[in-house]
Simulated scan of single mutants.
Amino acid sequence: MDAIPPAVRVLGETSVRADQDAYKQLATLAARGVAVVSAVQGRWDVAATVTDFLSVSYDPPTMVVSLFGLSRIAEAVTSSGRFAVSLLAHDQRGLADRLGAPGAPLVGLLDQVPHSRREPLAPVVIDSALAWFELRVVATQDAATHVLVVGEVVATCATARWSARPLVRWRSEYQ
């Protein structure tokens, strides 16, 4: 059994204010799927790796993604009003790392990544993803350093790889 990290306090009946380091360590215990969020900004395709997204409703189909508020992808999604979420497979860690790196170049970002779009000016989807969702922004909400983007799903597709294992992040590592 792993020892409890030193920044984490085991609490009894009393409550204390959450410690940032302890929160970060404990939050990584939730396994999360890995996806690529993409949008079009001007004439550029913008994309970034995310792990904080969820299905909110089936009627109407709705998802939420959490994006760092000062990021290029947050600006692209909110200004364009459209975005896509491509769910990554277990063997796409390299793509997740590349698109998740801070300061990734805008020009040529997706040149080596097979992708397509449903129609002109639609956000790109990763061809080798497990599945993808195209969404229309219906609401945004600032939350600390992030913006929560609520999107109504306007198109979906399961790819030929839909039965492959998903890429999952747990304890700050890909699994």
Rank of each mutant, 00 (worst) to 15 (best):
H146V: 06
V125Y: 13
V107Y: 02
S71A: 07
T14S: 13
G69C: 04
T140Q: 09
S86R: 03
A47M: 07
F68A: 11
R82T: 05
V168R: 09
V150Y: 13
L26F: 12
W162P: 01
Q141N: 01
R98Y: 06
D91K: 14
D45C: 12
R32C: 04
V64F: 03
V36L: 09
A104D: 03
G151K: 05
D19E: 15
G108D: 15
S66M: 05
T140C: 06
R171F: 14
T78Q: 11
R136W: 01
A158K: 14
P60N: 13
V77I: 05
G42N: 04
L130E: 10
R165V: 13
A158V: 07
V113I: 14
L167H: 05
D59M: 05
A164G: 02
L54M: 14
R82M: 07
A158M: 13
A74S: 13
P123E: 13
L109R: 15
V77C: 04
R117F: 06
A139K: 10
F133M: 11
A144L: 12
T156C: 08
A122Q: 08
G12D: 14
V147I: 14
L67M: 06
G94V: 02
L130M: 04
H90D: 10
S128D: 12
T145H: 06
V64Y: 01
V64I: 15
G12F: 10
A155G: 04
V36S: 03
A30C: 10
V154K: 06
A7M: 08
V36M: 01
